[in-house]
Design a protein around this nucleic acid. Structure first.
Length: 436
DNA sequence: TCTGGGGTCCTAGGACCC
DNA sequence: TCTGGGGTCCTAGGACCC
């Protein structure tokens, strides 16, 4: 494509056209929906265990608090600047996310839900639509119906739509459309190389060393060069920046290949029994996730590790157990997890985190592998499916862990710190917002 | 005292096969 | 000159994303 050809309007100039829509400072905006007093004030949402900042309002960003900053590195700013702090409330965020996605689907069904707060839309088929009107309408509708401000970026490829979105955010405007080569070039020139979607910390360093500082520098490169230095991923990236779409819209969510449940303990643990209780809890969560998605796993891995940030010696142990028959049965998973922990655990260390992974997932009713030497008891899971489903139903209705497995402990020591969580306004009757 | 959690894709290299 | 060759499958590790 000739990047200097005369300006033309999308989508005639390009065969493809994408929009990326995301909620501004999404978790903070969710908190503000039910607490308007937070508007125009510095607000921070913390990760699990209140460990670090995972969402910051613009006011908090202006105070110089970076994404991912550990709580203790900015705790001294809280009082003098009256920063409002929240523990993460994913039940609330997930629910508002669903509502946002539903509204976006009224604009086009050709949508890919990319993350909790982001969606790509394929706009190429909307040939008769004025994208300025469309973007403004999306912004107005979502702000009015949910109360969350969004930003819309539109461009001929997903990567350029991302660039457009970033430019809009920088200018604090609701949307940006990159249609002409001149517009694209201008946007690329004001985008730092590290802010390009797909360029992480390592590649930023590498590219800077070679004298590339902006997205425009990278877009000027030969894709063959990119393939050599950054594999096929880099080649796609350069082509996308040049306006050739390589990343299609994935409107159908593929089955997960792996599922993991990992948590910091909140306290330091040294006793194997305490870690077993945590791992049992994680295995229970894993079973729930697998059953919900109708998947079974042929193998699990369990790990436990010390803190990489402390001065004490670092250790990470991993144990793996395979199943004769892929399963999503909680007692089977717990039993295997505890056995795997036996491989991973080494006495004498101060543990901070543990987790369980399931990989090579297959659909529960998919084709089954024949087992040559199958023990009679191997499919004990079968008998427990209805029990697990009943427990899932109880916990769904009455709240997490109303019914739980004894191996998780009656009073476990690994309970998560969540000191500042807001009510789950939209998903719990008991936590409804009262007005008046 | 205090540093999240959950995913994907790609490549290299070894094992194994004919 | 060259002294087996080519393929698949699996895993570990590294990169990225939000």
């Amino acid at each position: 494509m000739n990047m200097t050809s005369s300006p033309a309007l999308l989508p005639d100039a390009h065969p493809t056209c994408f929009a990326i829509i995301d909620g501004n400072n999404f978790f903070v905006s969710c908190e503000r929906v039910f607490n308007p007093a937070l508007n125009n004030k510095p607000v921070i949402v913390l990760s699990n265990n209140d460990g670090c900042a995972i969402a910051r309002s613009n006011e908090a960003k202006a105070l110089g608090i970076p994404m991912g900053a550990p709580f203790h590195t900015f705790s001294h700013l809280i009082k003098p600047h009256r920063i409002k702090i929240f523990s993460s409330n994913f039940e609330l965020y997930g629910d508002l996310s669903n509502r946002m996605m539903q509204i976006l689907q009224t604009f086009t069904p050709d949508i890919e839900m990319y993350s909790i707060d982001e969606a790509f839309l394929n706009l190429a088929p909307l040939t008769c639509v004025d994208f300025t009107v469309l973007a403004q309408s999306m912004y107005d509708t979502i702000l009015k119906q949910i109360g969350i401000p969004i930003t819309v970026g539109i461009g001929p490829t997903k990567t350029l739509a991302k660039v457009a979105n970033r430019v809009a955010k920088k200018q604090k405007i609701p949307f940006q459309i990159l249609a002409t080569p001149a517009e694209i070039n201008a946007a690329l020139k004001q985008t730092a190389i590290g802010d390009v979607w797909g360029i992480g910390r390592n590649l930023t360093l590498k590219l800077r060393q070679q004298g590339m500082y902006t997205a425009h520098d990278l877009a000027s490169k030969d894709p063959r060069w990119a393939r050599k230095t950054m594999t096929v991923v880099g080649e796609r990236l350069v082509r996308e920046l040049q306006g050739f779409s390589c990343l299609p819209l994935n409107s159908i969510e593929p089955d997960k290949q792996s599922i993991q449940v990992t948590r910091s303990f909140g306290v330091r643990l040294t006793e194997r029994g305490d870690i077993e209780a945590a791992i049992s809890t994680h295995a229970t969560r894993l079973g729930e996730k697998l059953r919900k998605q109708n998947l079974v796993t042929p193998v699990i891995s369990v790990f436990c590790r010390t803190s990489p940030f402390s001065n004490t010696p670092y250790y990470k142990g991993i144990g793996t157990i395979g199943f004769d028959i892929p399963t999503h049965d909680t007692p089977t998973l717990i039993k295997a997890a505890i056995k795997a922990l036996g491989q991973a655990f080494k006495a004498g260390f101060i543990y901070q985190k543990a987790g369980i992974y399931a990989h090579g997932l297959v659909p529960k009713d998919g084709p089954k592998q024949k087992i040559l030497f199958q023990k009679k008891t191997a499919d004990s899971s079968k008998n427990n499916f209805s029990l697990c489903n009943s427990i899932d139903a109880i916990n769904q209705r009455f709240g997490k862990d109303t019914a739980f497995w004894a191996s998780s402990g009656i009073r476990p020591r690994h309970v998560m710190k969540q000191n500042q969580r807001s009510p789950r306004y939209t998903t719990r009757w008991s936590e409804l917002k009262w007005v008046g």
